[in-house]
Every structure is written in structure tokens, then in C-alpha cells.
């Protein structure tokens, strides 16, 4: 089986233990990965999130995927949840929009209203 090399793992493990996080996650990013989302480009959005996470080195952000949210025509979509804040659903995403959302909402704490459909279950931007 192809393996990560000992040198790779040793370096990664050292860096991980140096920057060990405290407590849980501050932010959660859910990329909607139903058939509709995948066909519309959700995998590229997920890869953009992974790139941004690697670039910024943030240690308190969890990423996951979910199924169809029932708004197929608005895919690709992602939901951003910050601790203590209502979740914000973003629609019709591109890689560029996702990078802006990552910088301003995930990192900066301020939702990008022009790309958002809804916050929580009631407020519509």
C-alpha cells in the first residue's frame, strides 16, 4: 500500500503538537454534497475550503458535508456556523465567493450578506 513517509508523518505530528488546540471548534463549515450539489460544483467548493484552512492554519474550524438541502437550483451551497451565532446558508457559490466567505465570515466573524440566503430559520438577507 502507498504510505505517507516516516519523515512526512514525523514533521506533521511535531507541528500538530506544537500548535495543539484548546477546547472545541469555533466554526463549522458544511458543504452540501447531494447529487445536485456535486453536479453544480460542490467538490470544488470543498477543495477551496480545505485550501483556505491549510493556508490560514486555523485550528478551530471543522468541515463536513451533508446531503441535499432541498434547494437544488441554488447549489452549490454551504452553511457556516459560528459558536453562539445562527447558521448562515450561502447559495450559488463559486470558489471566489467561498474564499471571500472564508476570509470575512469564518475568519473575521462577519457574514457576507450579498451571498447569503438565510441566517437561522427566519431572517432572510
Amino acid at each position: 500500500m502507498a504510505k505517507l513517509t516516516i519523515a512526512d508523518l514525523k514533521k506533521i505530528k511535531e507541528q500538530y503538537h506544537q500548535g495543539l488546540r484548546e477546547g472545541g471548534f469555533r466554526a463549522k463549515i458544511t458543504v452540501h454534497m447531494g447529487t445536485c450539489g456535486i453536479a453544480a460544483g460542490a467538490r470544488a467548493i470543498m477543495n477551496t475550503v480545505m485550501d483556505e484552512l491549510a493556508k490560514t492554519g486555523l485550528k478551530d474550524v471543522a468541515i463536513t458535508t451533508s446531503g441535499c438541502a432541498g434547494l437544488c437550483s441554488q447549489e452549490p451551497m454551504a452553511t457556516i456556523e459560528l459558536t453562539g451565532e445562527p447558521p448562515v446558508k450561502y447559495i450559488a457559490l463559486t470558489e471566489e465567493k467561498m474564499r471571500k466567505i472564508f476570509a470575512e465570515h469564518v475568519k473575521g466573524g462577519k457574514p457576507v450578506k450579498e451571498y447569503a440566503l438565510v441566517a437561522g430559520h427566519e431572517t432572510t438577507y
Binding site: M1, A2, I12, Q15, Y16, M50, A54, A62, I63
Partner: peptide
């Protein structure tokens, strides 16, 4: 070519496979 995440997790000795540096190495 074959990759098995159970073996990678075993080698990581408790470090999460979702750690960005690990994902980059797997990529």
C-alpha cells in the same frame, strides 16, 4: 495503487486525519 485510511490513522497515533497538514500530505 491502494490507500487505506485505517493504516494512515494507525500511523498518525491519535492525530486527526482531518488535520489540514495531513489532508495536504494525503492529497
Amino acid at each position: 495503487f491502494r490507500i487505506d485510511t485505517r493504516e494512515i490513522k494507525n500511523d498518525l497515533e491519535g492525530m486527526p486525519i482531518s488535520e489540514p497538514a495531513v489532508l495536504s500530505a494525503i492529497r
